[in-house]
Amino acid sequence: MHALALLSAGIAFVGAIMVITRRVAVHAVLYLVVTLLAVAMVLALLGAAFAAMLEIIIYAGAIMVLFVFVVMMLNSGQPDAAREGEWLRPRAWAGPGVLAGLLCGELLYAATPFSGHAWPLAPLTARDVGLGLFGHYVLMVELASFLLLAGLISALHIGRNRVEDR
């Protein structure tokens, strides 16, 4: 089981690297789906089956469909393709890469190793999550619903056809 978890984590990590290094957007989307499925595997192995299901259904399902649609609707710009070669040169990625590596190192260094007795493996069921969600965190659920509503309205407003305005 442990090896399986490490394998999933490794796949997720490699997939993420592939996502940010692809030139063609559709390939990146495919690798992102792989990453998300691997992350869902990790979640399932962590005992969060409910979260893993949601990760697959909502993230790898719904959100990725959005990405695919948008990539299809953009006639992948020709000027972009010409410039994509540029960032492969070290002077374009060295700075951000060093910055990200530095942050990663610091995070790993700052994380104090946890030891001691852990809880026995008893998976948290959807029932526990639901009780927490609609008991203690119910105000947060309301706020999240407002956030979703605001997102819906702004997406409608931004994305509506403006041809008649001009």
Binding site: A12, A111, W119
Partner: peptide
């Protein structure tokens, strides 16, 4: 005991986060 200890999870998520940031 979960299959991944918290230390391993921290390692994994830090690396994933850094890749995303990069």
């Amino acid at each position: 005991m979960p299959v991944l200890s918290l230390n391993e999870s921290l390692l994994f998520t830090s690396m994933l986060f850094s890749v995303g940031l990069a």
